[in-house]
Design a protein around this nucleic acid. Structure first.
Lengths: 228, 228
DNA sequence: TCTGTTTAAATTGTTAACAATTTATGTTAC
DNA sequence: GTAACATAAATTGTTAACAATTTAAACAGA
């Protein structure tokens, strides 16, 4: 990929959203961003337009850019879309995954397991999202992969907004069972597990409550952090 | 919706793509666009960034913006994604459509029928796309609706690139049968019909051949045309 | 103390000018 | 006639300055 200031900015904001460091409603000031990423405002503006197209940022004329705050209806739509897309993804995975792919899934499970013992919530969220994105990659449909990237980020926003308890993370156990059914080449079961898993996550969201919070942008978005 | 120059430009380009007036590979020069829509280049640049995020435009550094030319692999991914998304949409439609919705579908069928007799291919393409988008609207999932909007536009690009014969349009007959199964509240049959319909369209695409062509942008994108 | 108004600061929106790069044109040599 | 090269034109990239709008602050009156 190219390495333009726009790309760097977009990637960092997306990472921060998926890690739940950037929360719904946070203002993304042009000056603040151009200072942080040492680029000019034209770059920032283009990057914000891209993020708005991804539907993780709202652009309000004369007011500026804000991390979008999904409504309850929108949240349910996001989860239904995820079920639709991940159902096809998991089918692709069961059919197309080779031994190396399954090995990479097992490696990921081990990583998630070790992270779980560390009690590092942001890290756990990131790893959990990475599992779903790894499935999308193995499924080898770039369109579905792209949409799932968007939807998982919006899911992070939703959970950050409404999600109540710590259990709102994907449980490793469910991930492990999904991997097992992939290894068994059991398409029906794999689809059932994924669907159940997503419904489980959605079910734990406590709509009605909200947990807004703000922090200085410089603490949240340091452009020189090592992304991986 | 707001009425900023960016929005107007984006909508017009999207319309032109879905109508196959704008074809894959066409260059979208900044000067040309800013002249056509009488706005400055900053607006054009933001609009192009948005279109690039929608994946219907490729931004090549120092070269400019071009209507994207989907590869065969990408085309197949687009169609699989459509099947995944439209399967859920049609399920929603069967469950949620009221009598007024079904009436609007029948009205649309009549419109398609009358257009078919006119032998106006661009108009037919637009109407055909509108049918799928009407289903998405009735399905009442804004996320799926948005994704289908993107995917139908990319489908237009694909058919414009590879599509061989006139039959590559959606046949009214299949649309009519889909509406009938909705009216019958036959979920399984409706899903089968949509899936079959999409596979039918995909099957008629002649990969390998290409039919590129260019024309003056001013002929294709007149900002003062009445969009409906 | 609260409310409403005025003033100042900060932020977004717009435009133009200039630099860098690519594309087109024209020329020369073979 | 073609290829390679030099030049000119057009296009994209970058920056800064200024205008318009919004937000924050200061202040007066009840």
């Amino acid at each position: 990929m190219s390495d333009t200031p726009e790309t760097v900015l977009v990637e960092h904001v997306l990472d921060a959203i998926s890690d739940q460091r950037l929360r719904a409603g946070t203002k993304l000031g042009e000056q603040a961003l151009s200072d942080l990423f040492s680029c000019n405002r034209a770059h920032v503006r283009r990057a914000l337009a891209t993020l708005a197209a991804y539907q993780v940022v709202d652009l309000i004329p004369n007011r500026g850019a804000f991390v979008s705050t999904p409504s309850e209806d929108e949240a349910r739509d996001v989860f239904q879309a995820r079920r639709a897309i991940e159902a096809t993804i998991i089918r692709n995975v069961v059919r197309r995954a080779d031994e190396a792919d399954i090995a990479s899934l097992r490696t990921h499970l081990a990583t998630e397991d070790s992270i779980r013992s560390q009690n590092d919530r942001p890290k756990a969220i990131r790893a959990s999202r990475a599992f779903h994105m790894l499935l999308a990659k193995i499924g080898r449909n770039s369109v579905l992969e792209h949409y799932l990237a968007e939807l998982t980020m919006r899911t992070s926003l939703i959970i950050g907004l409404y999600g109540s308890n710590a259990a709102s993370l994907c449980s490793d156990d469910e991930h492990a069972r999904i991997v097992q059914s992939i290894a068994d080449r059991d398409e029906t079961r794999a689809q059932e597990m994924v669907d159940h898993h997503l419904r489980h996550i959605e079910g734990e969201i406590a709509f009605g409550e909200e947990a807004p919070r703000v922090g200085p942008l410089s603490m949240i978005l340091s452009p020189d952090r090592t992304t991986g």
